[in-house]
Write a protein that binds this DNA or RNA. Structure first.
Length: 739
DNA sequence: ACATCCTTTCCTGATT
DNA sequence: GAATCAGGAAAGGATG
């Protein structure tokens, strides 16, 4: 009932506003002014119809001021500058407002004077007003500005989607003055949040008018201006499918080798260097130190069926068809779509790659070494003779069948339909969770089985030829390529034999995230790779930190890690080693307990607090800015940040959001309003840790993540939701999140 | 070599 | 006081 009343009152308000503005546009006669003024008053003060949205306030504010001005001027027969009533004049708006709001006070009733005073405060109150989520039941209905404000006619040519996007609370974070001053304002400009106006909240403070004007007028202060105004030509760039040329493919090629029922074979696309190496990169980048551009002729040959767009599409996805957004949308629509792209970009660096020997040990620990025998050599002809990356969808289906049989399933009893259309390249790009998302019951089994094959591939001569000579073959395993690598079997530190799905359920609950230590000391994701994976840790440094990590695997991993640290995977190993050592030294001296003669990256014990305390002896007034060492530096070699398009933060967040895994959504992220792309971090630090896992940066925090998120404001990928913590909104350039 | 992109890191100050 | 937000500044790595 209350809501109905509210809606009615809002409707009345909007109706009144429309009337008001229409009258103003036709330059109302003096006789109309009192009525218009009444409408204005009703809108603002008497109309207790919930606070108007900032945009409405702005419009009505302008209207009222203009009406008051007319009312004031006309009886005095003062010349009326034409522009004063036709459109708000950006350049003079603050001054005009100030002047014209002063003058009526002499003649208006005290109540109206008070109203005007309130209006002035409202100018800067826009940030105080929106405290609701767009689309929520309490949200104000969006205004169609095109109908009520001629100065916004530029938007008429824009798509309804964008118009709607312009009508949100976020954009309304601009003050009335700003709004009026920027008749042609790109969305990028509009969404970039200005610095908070210290006087913006009239409910908190009641600053004097001059202070308000000074603080909030862009003409007088730059403090509240958008951080990075972009050319207004961006207005014309509004389009539903705006995509960054660097991050997205912009079109859906229906004839492409699609994720769903790909029409293999297909004419291989002409690939440039990057493209031709893309598969190799995606296959091997996390496993090699290829620098992202190493040509792998054999592999390229073997992967002839797999085409990539070498031009423009550097999103890191197999361009077997749609861009990522389409992929996701398709995934939402049908079962035949392969969620390869879900985490495709999350190439894992080499530090998570376990040498085959260690993998074997891990499998042995898991009691599955017996299953590792010659699986690659068995099975139907076809897939056995190729590297998994070169498997066709049919090969994959045969392989699925083989694995099922190997695991004791009656032939035909398992349905692999969810993997229909998946080729080997896609499979090798899928992480454990990807498999589970596709096949909750057996995803882990598929993942492990493929991992075993890839392990065997590392020693296969034909596969070995695919690998650059300077790359250790051990690195060719899928685990390091897992999108969510902490779920990899090599790092599966959970109960042996535990069903991964259950395991996820058990550990991806809100409660279980309690074990996530912000300082990174105890980040216990279910299958989180050991901290040693990231660091050249002295084994004892963190031993036992993860309850999921068994001593046996710990030792093995520690050995791997130390070995990794001491031997670079690059041809320039020596240089790299020295580089590592230097960084390690810094790390040790700065952040770690230098108790060990071995070089230690102790990110686990790193925290800003500790760092500060460790340098307490000579604490400068302001901490000398020394960038923390990057323990993953050597491990990132070969990983292409930009070559792996799709590895962007916003895509990662989006993938979490569109994930149907309830352990991710809504446990750690959730939609607030999916239609409008509004989402919220439920477990902000957990998200940050997961992001850190993806980027092999164990020091990632939500603070850092959020900084990166805020950078997306400029690029219109994300938009802030003012007044709501941990809430963001996808912008026009963010694709793939719509259902 | 250089510019650019996309973060990452650190920071200050404000807000909740 | 902690968490979060906003954004400047600097830097790094990859790419074109």
């Amino acid at each position: 009932m209350e809501q109905m009343k509210r809606r009615k009152s809002l409707g009345d308000a909007l109706s009144g506003m429309g009337t008001l503005l229409q009258a103003l546009e036709r330059r109302p006669s003096a006789s109309e002014l009192p009525a218009l003024s009444r409408i204005s008053t009703d809108l603002f003060v008497n109309g207790q119809a919930k606070p108007l949205s900032p945009m409405q306030q702005c419009l009505a504010n302008v209207a009222l001021v203009a009406a008051s001005q007319q009312h004031q001027h006309q009886p005095q027969h003062q010349p009326q500058p034409q522009h004063q009533h036709q459109q708000p004049q950006p350049q003079h708006q603050p001054q005009h407002q100030h002047q014209h709001q002063q003058q009526p006070q002499q003649h208006q009733q005290p109540q109206q004077q008070q109203q005007l005073k309130q209006l002035k405060q409202l100018d800067c109150a826009v940030e105080a007003a929106p405290r609701r989520v767009p689309g929520s039941p309490d949200s104000m209905p969006d205004l169609n500005l095109n109908n009520i404000h001629t100065s916004q006619q530029q938007y008429a040519s824009n798509s309804p989607v964008l118009i709607q996007q312009q009508q949100n609370w976020t954009q309304q974070s601009y003050s009335c003055n700003e709004f009026n001053n920027q008749q042609v304002l790109s969305e990028a400009e509009r969404i970039v949040p200005r610095k908070r106006c210290p006087l913006a909240n009239p409910l908190r403070t009641a600053p004097d008018e001059s202070a308000i004007t000074a603080a909030c007028s862009p003409a007088q202060s730059t403090e509240c201006k958008p951080a990075s105004a972009q050319p207004s030509t961006n207005v014309n760039c509004f389009a539903p499918n705006i995509s960054s040329p660097r991050t997205d493919t912009t079109s859906f090629h229906s004839d492409s080798v699609g994720f769903s029922n790909p029409p293999f074979p297909r004419q291989p696309q002409q690939t440039n260097m990057a493209a031709s190496s893309s598969c190799a990169q995606q296959l091997s980048a996390p496993r090699h130190s290829s620098g992202g551009s190493t040509m792998l002729p054999n592999l390229q040959q073997n992967l002839g069926q797999i085409s990539y767009t070498g031009n423009g599409n550097q999103s890191g996805y197999y361009n077997n068809g749609p861009n990522m957004s389409n992929t996701w949308e398709q995934q939402q629509q049908g079962p035949s779509v392969v969620p390869f792209a879900t985490h495709s970009g999350y190439l894992q660096p080499q530090q998570q790659q376990q040498p085959t020997r260690q993998k074997t040990a891990t499998f042995s620990m898991l009691g599955r070494s017996d299953q590792k025998t010659s699986l690659y050599q068995r099975g139907p002809a076809g897939w056995t003779s190729k590297h998994p990356c070169a498997w066709s969808p049919m090969d994959c289906q045969l392989w699925f069948q083989s694995v099922a049989e190997d695991n004791g399933f009656i032939p035909g009893s398992l349905d692999f339909g969810m993997f229909e259309g998946v080729n080997g390249a896609m499979l090798t790009r899928m992480g454990c969770i990807d498999f589970i998302m596709k096949d909750k019951a057996h995803g882990e089994m598929w993942f492990h089985a493929l991992g075993r094959i890839l392990d065997q591939c590392t020693s296969a001569t034909d596969i070995g030829q695919l690998i650059p000579k300077n790359e250790p073959t051990e690195n060719l395993n899928m685990y390091g390529n897992s999108s969510l690598q902490f779920l990899s079997p090599a790092n599966l530190t959970g109960p042996v034999g535990t069903d991964m799905s259950e395991y996820l359920q058990d550990h991806f609950s809100n409660d279980e995230f309690d074990d996530i230590d912000i300082n990174g000391e105890a980040v216990n994701f279910p299958c989180q790779p050991p901290l040693q994976d990231y660091t050249c840790l002295n084994g004892a440094a963190v031993q036992g930190q993860s309850p999921y990590y068994t001593p046996a695997s710990f030792v093995a991993q520690a050995q791997v890690s130390s070995s990794f640290c001491s031997t670079s995977q690059n041809s320039d190993g020596m240089d790299y080693k020295s580089d590592m050592e230097s960084e390690s030294t810094r790390s040790c001296s700065t952040y770690s307990t230098p108790s060990s003669s071995r070089l230690v990256y102790s990110f686990g014990s790193y925290s800003p607090t500790e760092r500060s305390s460790s340098s307490a002896d000579s604490t400068p007034p302001r901490q000398v800015r020394t960038r923390a060492p990057k323990p993953e530096k050597q491990q990132n070699k070969g990983r292409s940040k930009h070559g792996t398009r799709g590895n962007h933060l916003w895509e990662f967040i989006r993938d979490l959001l569109v994930s149907k895994d309830t352990k991710l959504n809504p446990k750690i992220v959730k939609w607030e309003n999916q239609e409008q792309g509004v989402f919220r971090f439920v477990e902000s630090e957990a998200v940050a840790k997961m992001w850190g896992e993806k980027k092999c940066n164990p020091r990632m925090t939500y603070e850092k993540l959020s900084r990166a998120m805020r950078y997306y404001y400029k690029s219109n990928i994300l938009m802030p939701v003012i007044g709501r913590r941990l809430v963001y909104r996808f912008g026009a350039k963010a694709t793939g999140w719509r259902v």
